[in-house]
Write a protein that binds this DNA or RNA. Structure first.
Lengths: 125, 125
DNA sequence: TCCATATATGAAAAGGTCTTCATATACTCA
DNA sequence: TGAGTATATGAAGACCTTTTCATATATGGA
């Protein structure tokens, strides 16, 4: 970061100062971004929707549902579990996964709404 | 994709079939993931929160607010604008940017809620 | 205990994204 | 029109993520 030149000049230095101090800190922004990045992969997205729909599924069935190799599913689930987005429950030699975060559920719904209503806004340059 | 072996075996082939046919299509999953990936970067996240707070800001002031070089801000804004997340308005030689999507606003709020309540859920392996 | 099954893990290859710098465009004002 | 300012763009390098393959762990049953 070098931020020379336009530092607090622009239009309204006071406003810049006000917004800057109200802005979420870099560390929080980083954590939020990490959450969104986790949702930012089609494979994981489909896993999450499968769990949203099914409630709970083992790795094997999840792989069948999303039509991906099980090792991929396992890798994906580890990331999601580490982030607290899904939880695992062992049942014999199977692992059952389920969503573990009400906010993520909400995020998924809101985003699907977005998809529906924003289809016409995509050609906007 | 090779999906041999566990195809529709697992526990419950019928359930797998049901969930699979209710699952959002790959193309939609891709578009949703693309949206989330766009939110998955700390720099863009801070820009979006700045706009959420300020309503509208020019590139210069945005750069000052998030403390990043203007060229980075410009690159980031292009991605966000192309996706219909922010909109641009020219005022003289300045460009003013603002959020252009109610759902994204919602997403930002929900996610910040998540951050607040999920601080204790992160050490869950 | 030995084998088969379900899942997890590590490391390397493949692919993507962010940052940076140099340069281009668009506008204002003199 | 010419100089200066605000923003945009392209391309290269650095960096990070996803996929793949081989292998490891854990469980249940014979």
């Amino acid at each position: 970061m070098d931020l020379e030149g336009c530092e607090v000049s622009g239009v309204d230095p006071d406003r810049v100062g006000a917004v800057r101090s109200a802005l979420l800190p870099v560390e929080e922004a980083g954590r939020l971004a990490a959450l969104f990045r986790l949702l930012g992969d089609p494979a994981r997205m489909r896993l999450l929707y499968a769990l949203l729909e099914a409630g709970e599924l083992c790795v094997c069935d999840l792989a069948a549902v999303v039509e991906a190799p099980e090792t991929n599913v396992s890798h994906a689930l580890r990331l999601l579990r580490t982030a607290g987005i899904v939880k695992a429950r062992r049942a014999g030699r199977r692992m059952h996964y389920a969503l573990d975060d009400a906010h993520v559920r909400l995020l998924l719904d809101v985003s699907r709404e977005h998809l529906r209503h924003a289809a016409d806004a995509t050609g906007r340059a």
